[in-house]
Design a protein around this nucleic acid. Sequence first.
DNA 1: ACGATTTGACCGAC
DNA 2: GTCGGTCAAATCGT
Length: 336
Amino acid sequence: MGTICEFEKSTIANELIQGMEVARQLKFHLSSSSTSPENELCMLQKILSSYDTALLLLNWSESSVVQPQAVPAMVNLPESPISTNESGDFKDHHRDVSNKRKALPTWKDQVKICSDNGVGNSADDGYSWRKYGQKDILGAKHPRSYYRCTYKKTRTCHATKQVQKSDNDPAIFEITYKGKHTCLKASNSVPPATPEKQEQKHSNHQQQEPNDVLINFRANLRVKTDDFRVIEASDSFSFPSRVEYNSQLSSFSQLVNEDLIGTFSPSFVSPETTGSSYFSVSPYQMNSFPQLSDSDYTEIISANTSTTNSPILDMDFQIDEVNLGLNFQFDTPGYF
DNA sequence: ACGATTTGACCGAC
DNA sequence: GTCGGTCAAATCGT
């Protein structure tokens, strides 16, 4: 507990440095007043993301060793059901269907889709989901979509999630995760040389190793100043995901959200739901969804699309960079 | 052909 | 009886 490996130290330092760098750029741009509000927001978002990621890493470092309760306000990651109303063992929840539903750990996310290039997959949680139902919910304006893990059968993974468009803000999707993924452990035990037929199809872009999930998540949080320059040129930038905590750690985010972002664009401030993590995706990406239906949006939310313009790619590269530099191994015991 | 999605039907909880 | 969640056949997409 409380131990931070060199990799994380480096990553945290990078995040803080990036935050400072972008802050400087923002200061310059503000003083020159030559940029659009979108660019200013973009920079603010980068600063936020850098600090959030750094804080997140600190948080994980403290909680990664056995005692999740030591950090009361951990981020509600898809694989971190800390807001569950149940505690402890999830292993037997698939035996009794009726009891299973009650026993499943449940936690919620709110995801804001405001993507630029139509591939706003920053909300991607790193898992592969298959839609198995959709229902109109009483009192709700939008239907609720039901997803289960693609590997429910092949790996007996009973993780499910429900995606529903928010009544208040059509750009926000409320995602309820139920059950913990067990497919990841199974995936480690499956020899890559003899993958199942189905898994072959997904192997390139869907199912991910546990480490990849973490990398993915961090990737979505990360901001690179190199990217930033490209972004300004191409105007096709996808904001990295932003995670807000309802803890003291979120003070920076809250400060910026309330004092800065709100002055630029009220729509950028999320209607926070207590206890929910909140992902935001670039508003620019919305341009490429001219006429999407509810189901289209929920599809975007649920799809695990590692397309070429995914920020994940940048992140993989960066992780590799760090990985090589520090000779870090993700399977180091105790890292997670 | 195969996997993913859609959608009406079914079932359990309340 | 109503509602939410899941199933499974039909359909769609690649």
